[in-house]
Amino acid sequence: MNVRRLADAALARGIAEVRRLTIAGTAVELIVEREVAQMILAPFAHLPASTDEPVLRIRVAALNDSDAAELGLDSVPDSGAVIPRDGTIEHLHRHSAALLDRDAGEIRALIRNDGALASWHRAKPLQVPLSIFFADRGVDLVHGGLVSLRGNGLLIAGNSGSGKSTLAAASLREGFDFLGDDCVGVRDREGYSIFGSSCLVTSDDEPKTVFFPERIAASTTLRAIVLPRILRARHVTMTPASGKEALLALAPSSILKRAVPAADALARMARLARELPAFRLEMGPIAEAAVQMRELLERLGA
């Protein structure tokens, strides 16, 4: 319970910022020590405020050297460590420590305030506890992009480098709303925005400056899965893909990184891949790809 004690002690000492948000339909309260507030709150800044009683309370404080030494973070392997302890789950990393109390609906985290950390390192302390918390509620955090037009969502699946972020950003030009380009939530046919995206953040100094702030959506109904591939072709082609192709694009990276428990999450993704139509989008000109995204929804009657 050291993470709980150290995080509470740090928050008791310092000034904290408080936000109440709705994440994947769940009221969440974030209490963050001011020193790390910008780093922690920025990825959630686009989500709608909530006035409901929080189901999940997240408390985050800065990690100092003595706390890191007490927690033994220097000896944690590169992969991190997930440790069940006294009915809670600890997730330790070199630069962060988090504790999830599933029954109480509480996450406490300590993270080093280090500008040299990569963005995915900064997001790390909350990803694992959030993925477990939401998995308990049937929401899988999947590795994919998500855009929506008039409440009709297209889930963009593919490995890193496939063009998910490019296609999601380009879709804004055709009137789509943006929900994410790397980690989004999925429960049955509903898709949710979870973390903000680096592609919508102009810099770490201006984390709330997004290119299209009015075009961020919190949730959508999934209509199809799109599997982009950057080919530098002269024209964009969209062709039907099999459920197997969709599952292969969606599941491995999602499950290896975030979605738990693996067998349950894979079964849910397989059901999604069976039920939703899937399409390969071989990308040439980006603007043309965005048009194809809009036309796809029109063909689907959405």
Binding site: S79, D136, S253, L256, V260, P261, A262
Partner: peptide, 29 residues
């Protein structure tokens, strides 16, 4: 066999034990 996840995981490897913990819980809920 598909081995194209290796680069991704080399950069950010999955934490061992996570699956088992969540799996135990899902059966009890």
């Amino acid at each position: 066999v598909y081995r194209d996840m290796q680069d991704l995981l080399a950069l950010d490897p999955p934490a061992p034990g996570m699956n088992q913990i969540a799996w135990q819980r899902s059966g009890s809920k």
